[in-house]
Every structure is written in C-alpha cells, then in structure tokens.
Computed example of a mutant assay.
Amino acid sequence: MNSPLATCDLCDAHKHDAPELFRVLPPVFRDFGALRTFSGPVTTLKCFEDNSLVKAAVDSCGTVDTPQGRVGKVLVVDGAGSLRRALLGGNLGAAAARNGWAGVVIDGCVRDVAELATQEVGIRALASMPMPTDKQNQGLKDAAVQIQGVWVNPGDWLYADADGMVVSAQPLG
C-alpha cells in the first residue's frame, strides 16, 4: 500500500507522543526497491549474517486483512547492522514483490542492486554488499527488535517516504 501520509506531516502531528507510540528511524537507510513510498503493519525478524528466515518470510504471503482493507506488510529485519553479508538479494526481492509485501527494511545489507531496483516493493537497507549469507536456519521471528537504536515491535505500523521512516504503535491517518 502506498502511503498518502507524508512522514513530515506524521512527525508534526505526533512529535510529542510517547516513544512507545511513535518513533523515527535514523536517516542511515538507502532506497533499493522501485517503491520509494510504502507503509504497512510490521513483521519482525532478528538474524545475523543468515538470511534463512528472510527467505521464508518473503516466500510467504505478504498481505494481511485489516480494518483498512487488505494491505501489504513491512518486513523489518534486525541484521545487527552487519556490513559483511547481504540479507536480501534479487531473488528474494522478487519474491517479496510477487507475494505482496509493501516493504522490507534491513538493518544490514542487500545485494543484486540492479535487480532490486526493478522490484515493485519498498526496500531500505544500510548498504550493498555482494557477499551472500550462510544459511544455518538461525534467528528469531516476531520479536521486538532494535533497529539503529529504535525499538520496532511486531504489529507496529511503518511509514516510509523520501523524507524517512516512522514507526507507530497503531495505524495513522
């Protein structure tokens, strides 16, 4: 779902909300997917240099029925900021787009940048890195994660546009 809500407007409206209700992710992420604006309810993963859970997630249905209608979810991956291995590449980016995910936000790296740029999904990560991960089926799913010092919980809503990314405990707008 493309968000008609601008992150600047959301920050103006919610700048005094408690941190457990409204948070802003630091401006360290780069755009890699074809969609620059995206939003949706959050699903979380925590994995370090192992993208087994990322593959399983993007291979699954990326939509959910909400009171707002059927929307794409946003996969938020705590990769511990690793710059040594890519947690998402062209094949997984294509799977995310094909399965209806609104976006993927990775506190880590991606690869196959030219392929990712053609996928109709929002993809944000710290950097590109050609080295793939090892697959050891390790990590956590649906747990609170810390992304660049900001807590993100399963079920939060993430809104992303050219100005940045914000996270809310509930849908906004």
Rank of each mutant, 00 (worst) to 15 (best):
M1D: 15
N2A: 12
P4I: 09
L5M: 08
A6H: 04
C8S: 08
C8K: 08
C11A: 06
D12A: 13
D12N: 12
A13T: 05
A13E: 08
H14M: 08
H16I: 08
D17R: 09
D17T: 05
E20Y: 09
L21E: 13
F22M: 03
V24R: 12
L25K: 00
P27A: 14
F29R: 00
R30G: 04
D31G: 05
F32N: 00
G33H: 13
A34D: 13
R36E: 06
T37D: 13
S39R: 06
P41F: 03
T43Q: 11
T44Q: 02
T44V: 08
F48N: 04
S52P: 07
S52W: 05
A56V: 01
A56T: 03
A56L: 04
S60H: 04
S60V: 01
C61T: 14
C61Q: 12
G62D: 06
G62N: 08
T63A: 07
V64F: 03
V64Y: 02
D65K: 14
P67K: 07
G69D: 12
R70L: 09
V74N: 09
V77Y: 00
V77A: 01
V77C: 01
V77R: 00
D78F: 02
D78N: 13
S82W: 08
R84G: 12
R85C: 14
A86F: 11
G89F: 00
G90Y: 10
G90V: 12
G90F: 11
N91W: 02
L92T: 10
A94D: 12
A94G: 11
A95Y: 07
R98V: 07
N99C: 08
W101E: 10
A102R: 06
G103M: 05
V105P: 00
I106L: 08
D107M: 06
G108I: 05
V110T: 05
V113Y: 02
V113F: 04
V113L: 09
V113W: 06
V113A: 15
E115W: 00
E115I: 06
L116A: 06
L116G: 03
A117P: 05
E120D: 15
E120I: 03
E120Y: 05
G122E: 04
R124V: 00
A125G: 03
L126F: 05
A127G: 02
A127Y: 03
P132F: 12
P132T: 13
P132I: 11
T133D: 11
D134T: 14
D134E: 15
Q136G: 11
N137G: 12
K141W: 14
K141P: 01
D142P: 10
A143T: 15
V145N: 11
V145S: 08
Q146V: 15
Q146S: 15
Q146K: 14
Q148T: 12
Q148E: 15
G149F: 10
V150I: 10
V150N: 00
V152K: 04
V152G: 06
V152H: 05
P154G: 09
G155I: 01
D156G: 11
D156S: 11
W157L: 12
L158G: 04
A160Q: 13
D161L: 08
M165C: 10
V166W: 05
S168M: 04
A169E: 05
Q170M: 01
P171I: 06
L172M: 12
G173R: 02
